[in-house]
Design a protein around this nucleic acid. Structure first.
Lengths: 148, 148
DNA sequence: TATTGTTATACTCTATAACTATA
DNA sequence: TATAGTTATAGAGTATAACAATA
């Protein structure tokens, strides 16, 4: 039997734990957490800079710099939009896709391990409640498919 | 009825959400997230630099710099240890205690709001499972009381 | 005028490596 | 020698403000 923490300590510590695992896996791919997040966001479809601003919740100048650094590593490229000559689209390169897939799969594996010891029913209920919270709060799809 | 995400997307997005709220509240107190975390960790008792290294999972030089910046704002002070003349103890000032209390209470309030719309039973089960995970994984007590 | 994006600047955060002082 | 902590350095991340180009 476990003593329950309060809601706030439980959430803050869980967030700290997940972030730690995320960063640990990032390091294995020579990525920083923001870089990995960017790659995950453009995984399914190319995105414009303004769109990335919303998804990552960063200022546009921050996105510019972040895209610069990942581009310099050859993991993504900027594409000019034919329709709007101001606009830029960001898409992963072949190397970027490989890295993203490896990273994504390993994160998934590591997080499954985190709940592996729980009874299946408890695990499912927990995941469902967490899903409810993030869907209710309109958290951007920074990991996993955009829609259900 | 909500469609459930997978375990990994649910956890990653929940962590992103909690971090966003954490940072938002930090901004209201003119703190960065690492600074607030430091203040929360020394809230209940003074800590040595090496101890902070373990609690915050940072290198000692990172802790030095972080303590420098919070000290410069007058929110904590370094105290010499009488027993070991190499050792330093970090404790909040009166101003630091006030800021920490305000920050802590607001984070708590904001996170309670996050689960306020859930049925009480679901909320309790969710909190218990989250507690189990973080206690099993020996997450450092970066928020809330150290022990149960 | 509004929008898209970049650049300049400044500060925080973090790690690695080298260092000082004490145990 | 080992431990506690700081300093030097370098790079990533971020925001604000000013800017250029296009719509």
């Amino acid at each position: 039997m476990t003593e329950s923490l309060g809601v706030a300590p439980a959430l803050v510590r869980l967030s700290f734990l997940v972030s730690s695992i995320y960063s640990e896996v990032c390091a294995g791919y020579d990525l920083t957490a923001p870089q990995a997040q960017l790659l995950c966001v453009i995984r399914d479809q190319p995105r414009g800079m303004t769109e990335l601003t919303d998804l990552l919740r960063l200022e546009k100048s921050s996105v510019s710099g972040l895209v610069d650094r990942v581009e310099r590593r050859g993991l993504l490229r900027r594409q000019m939009s034919p329709a709007d000559r101001r606009a830029v689209t960001v898409a992963p390169t072949a190397a970027g896709k490989r890295v993203t897939r490896g990273f994504y799969d390993e994160i998934t594996r590591r997080l499954h391990l985190l709940v592996a010891d729980l009874p299946a029913a408890e695990r499912d209920v927990f995941t469902l409640t967490a899903s409810r919270i993030v869907l209710d709060e309109a958290v951007p799809p920074i990991f996993g498919a955009a829609a259900a």
